[in-house]
Design a protein around this nucleic acid. Structure first.
Length: 430
RNA sequence: UCCUCAGUAGCUCAAUGGCAGAGCAUCCGGCUGUUAACCGGAGGGUUGUAGGUUCAAAUCCUACCUGAGGAGCCA
């Protein structure tokens, strides 16, 4: 008999089905055993009454330990007592692969232990739910840009020049030359915007920051749109539309997973346009009134960000930062030349910055000047300057960290659970 | 890089200078509707490593190793 996906088991109610998967948990009571089987699409309870099955089937059910792979055949029926609403009365249980002494028990474990067993931990229901939400968000990202006729441009992972300083770059040998793992696809997207108009890239990025917090990974996935002739106001709207689209998608298609994660959906339902916006100057004033010792020119730390977001249930857009604390390529505000047309989007509930973006400098002379001020090696950027030499145009873009979005949407504490195999300061295994 | 905390059974944790313990997991037994099932029994230890103090160290001291939480920086 052909196997049925457990997610589709309800369609077989009243008839016989065969499922293949792994034993998630088992409870027994003398003459009856309950096997919870998972196959990646869902969970189903299989009931094995001793009186109704062959001795071989009874023995197989008894021998099956946590995470043994199994094939179970039986009659499907609705039953309120079963988790999921349907259960199978097993007529045959076959152990496909035994699983002696599975290390992750249904009880509590520490972070280090679970992270060393990440390859097994992803079988656990909550981890499984997070990674399914991540997959849905990846699909939603592709859909959002496809619907808006963006062209996906894959930027290189191995690069010769950096967007920001070289201190946070992973260096590697490239046939005797130095190469670096990409920190951002932006420099490669700007030329592509001149070729295609609306473009985006989506892939892994690498930061050798020695940061050790729940908001940082050394390898994370970033999605970056870049749009020709888009100016700052339009950029803010694009970022807003994007986040609203992604959160709505999670609510529409990840209900089961969010429920398993005990995520409060009402908080996500409040993520609607328009998002509150403040400028950096206004933010500094608010913070000073609340007693924070901050002045124009200071970077906003974690506590400051949390204080600014405290009043809002929607993401907050902070814009127009001092030129000195931002990257070399950001366009100055014509109304206020001390600040640049950059934005940070801060997620509510303390999840912090999920998006950073800006309008880019399109004037060649100004960009050359900024490269010099930031002491960046001019030669490495010659090709990038060509974007301004041959038909320059105003343009803007942003980057969104996928793991930060997923952590926020799922309501999980640490970014390391929002990626299948996290890379952190102290972890490159498994 | 800095600050703080923690390393004891496979896992989560007790034992505060005086006999190394419990729950879960594993194995054995019991129970015909379990929901992290429950009940009884068994096995399981170089207390992170090295040194020191002491009649006596898991416990106090020193160094190192490993991990966690936070800061800075960022997405």
């Amino acid at each position: 008999m052909e196997a049925t996906a457990i997610s589709k088991i309800g369609q077989r109610a009243g008839s016989t089905a065969r499922v293949r998967g792994w034993l998630y948990n088992k409870r027994s009571s003398g003459k009856i055993q309950f096997l919870i089987v998972r196959d990646g699409t869902g969970y189903v309870q299989c009931v094995v009454p001793r009186a109704d099955v062959s001795p071989e089937t009874w023995e197989a059910a008894e021998k099956a330990t946590q995470e043994s792979s199994l094939a179970v055949t039986g009659a499907v029926r609705e039953d309120r007592r079963a988790p999921g609403g349907f259960e199978m009365s097993a007529t045959a249980v076959e152990i496909l692969g035994p699983s002696p002494e599975y290390p992750i028990s249904p009880k509590e474990h520490g972070v280090d232990f679970l992270m060393n067993l990440r390859h097994l931990w992803m079988r656990s229901s909550q981890q499984h739910a997070v990674l399914r939400v991540r997959s849905e968000m990846e699909q939603a990202i592709a859909d959002f840009f496809y619907e808006r006729e963006f062209v996906r441009i894959d930027s290189p992972i191995l690069t010769g020049s950096s967007v920001e300083g070289t201190s946070t770059l992973f260096e590697t040998d490239y046939f005797g030359d130095k190469a670096y793992l990409s920190q951002s696809g932006q420099l490669y997207l700007e030329p592509a915007a001149a070729a295609f108009g609306k473009v985006y890239c989506f892939g892994p990025t690498f930061r050798a920051e020695k940061s050790k917090t729940r908001r940082h990974l050394t390898e994370f996935w970033m999605v970056e749109p870049e749009v020709a002739f888009l100016e700052f106001e339009g950029l803010c709207e694009l970022a807003e539309d994007f986040v609203v689209f992604l959160v709505r998608r999670a609510l529409e298609r990840c209900g089961e997973d969010l429920k398993r994660l005990e995520r409060d959906g009402t908080k996500l339902e409040k993520v609607q346009k328009p998002f509150p916006r403040i400028t950096y100057r206004e933010g500094i004033r608010h913070l000073q009134q609340k007693g924070f010792p901050v002045n124009f020119g200071d970077d906003l730390g974690a506590d400051e960000e949390t204080a600014l977001c405290a009043e809002s249930e929607r993401p907050l857009i902070v814009s127009r930062f001092p030129t000195a604390i931002k990257s070399f390529y950001m366009q100055p505000d014509p109304q206020d030349p001390e600040v640049v047309l950059g934005l940070d989007m801060l997620a509510p509930e303390g999840y912090g910055e999920i998006i950073g973006g800006s309008q880019r400098i399109h004037d060649l002379a100004l960009l050359e000047k900024r490269l010099e001020e930031h002491k960046l090696p001019r030669e490495a950027y010659e090709w990038y300057l060509d974007v301004r030499r041959y038909g320059t145009f105003p343009h803007a873009g942003f980057g969104m960290g996928l793991e930060r979005l997923v952590a926020w949407v799922c309501g999980i504490h640490h970014l390391r659970e929002a990626i299948p195999y996290p890379r952190t300061l102290k972890r490159i295994y498994p």
